[in-house]
Design a protein around this nucleic acid. Structure first.
Lengths: 239, 239
DNA sequence: CGCCCCATTGAAGGGTTTCAATTATCGTGG
DNA sequence: CCACGATAATTGAAACCCTTCAATGGGGCG
């Protein structure tokens, strides 16, 4: 069990293949020693490097091993619109199948390692292997569900509820990948959080100090410590 | 102006099989005369009837032939959270594959006809027919993309931009299904629109009169007439 | 060590909500 | 077909929340 929780060298956590979203794909292939036919393992992207840009051909999916990414659009006034963050174990690019091009820019928020899954080879596997087909169906279906939940969280919640929801969702996402701890290091800036939540950086900052004053968490720069998880959940739901 | 609004006699528009999102599934089967093996055609649901409730088993997908649906969650305080509206040609339920249960309540906003696709039989087809498999991949992928776009629209736009975006998106969705007209009959109430957009019913009302004063559209109850499409697009983008 | 970027904090302004009252529309039954 | 009640939509005024503008403080990296 310990090796599941093994940490990356420094700032961000890695995920074991067992707890990765494409474990059902990789683990049988690891055993058969033919994983390389579908994916490149542990490709490194330094902080701030772009993995994709809007409009480029869609030929790879990315699965995060360690680090973090942000996905965003640039509008015609050069304004950035962040649509999501990706953490270890997450798969990136499922929304590109219909257009066959990359719909968003994807940038490494910190030094990041990803496994790159070649689209074409993956689709061949889907034809021959129903487990992998079902895995992809489930991943896409989960993505749809998650985005609907994000919509619920953001369209009707007040600023402090949104931020509490965001922090709690990071906590649960890390937990699902084997990193259960009240300590988190945020990989994104206040500006990124604000952009994603539709709030200004000043509001984010003020709410962090408010949550701190209420004894719910401590926020020292990028380091978050959740002091009272139930209180955080209540704050996320406006109670 | 009176006659413009009276011109729309019918309650809601239907979509032809050619322009429906699952046309690639149905049309070959219609020709082979074995469509009934997968779906029930034109099932009727009266206004306000529930098609699904949260937690019930997921055994059918719905494709709208005529009418309109809303999809919503009820939280523990009995408050409704609308996550989307479905129009003729749309497919409903792609987010349920992973949980294998219906994640939301779905209610008919007006008298509605749907084609019901049986999940199990559909998945059998997916195994044997790559066209249908690709169709489902594309539909799910499109769903993911669309929800991300909705996120962009709602997290960073002001109230009037949100409503303009919403009206314009209804226009484009109807257009794609063959109903190209500046006249629309809204199937949802102001309260539903407000709920979905994260705004109050009063704000929705005020913005409708503002858009009307600016000569962008006329809004007489549920009847919308888009007088200036470019101005609507500009309003949607805060210009 | 100093610089730059990021984060924090304060005060004023604006946009949206809330509360309240009025008007319009729809469905129903006489 | 009209009258009626119930529901939905509009409008106004005050309160509140978040943004904007401005200035200060702090942390990371050369």
């Amino acid at each position: 069990m310990e090796n599941i929780h093994r940490k990356l060298t420094s700032k961000s956590y890695s995920v074991s293949c067992e707890l990765c979203s494409i474990g059902p794909l990789c683990i049988p292939m690891l055993i058969n020693n033919n994983l390389e036919s579908v994916l490149n393992r542990r490709v490194f992207y330094a902080k701030d490097r772009l993995l994709t840009t809007q409009g480029m051909p869609f030929d790879k999916l990315y699965v995060i091993h360690a680090g973090a990414l942000k996905s965003y659009a640039i509008d015609d006034e050069q304004i950035e619109h962040i649509v999501g963050f990706y953490l270890p174990g997450d798969i990136v690019g499922l929304g590109n199948f219909s257009s066959n091009q990359c719909n968003y820019n994807i940038k490494a928020l910190v030094d990041t390692q990803v496994c790159e899954v070649r689209r074409e080879e993956l689709m061949e596997l889907v034809s021959s292997n129903t487990d992998i087909r079902d895995m992809l169906f489930n991943l896409m279906s989960t993505d749809i569900f998650n985005y609907k939940q994000v919509l619920i969280n953001f369209s009707q919640k007040k600023a402090d509820e949104r931020l509490a929801t965001f922090i709690y969702s990071l906590y649960t996402r890390y937990s699902k990948r084997g990193h259960v701890s009240p300590n988190m290091k945020l990989s994104m800036s206040r500006a990124d959080i604000g952009n994603f939540l539709g709030l200004t950086i000043e509001t984010i900052s003020r709410i962090f100090t408010k949550l701190q004053d209420e004894g719910i968490l401590t926020a020292k720069g990028k380091y978050i410590y959740i002091k009272n998880l139930n209180a955080l959940i209540n704050a996320a739901n406006g109670k």
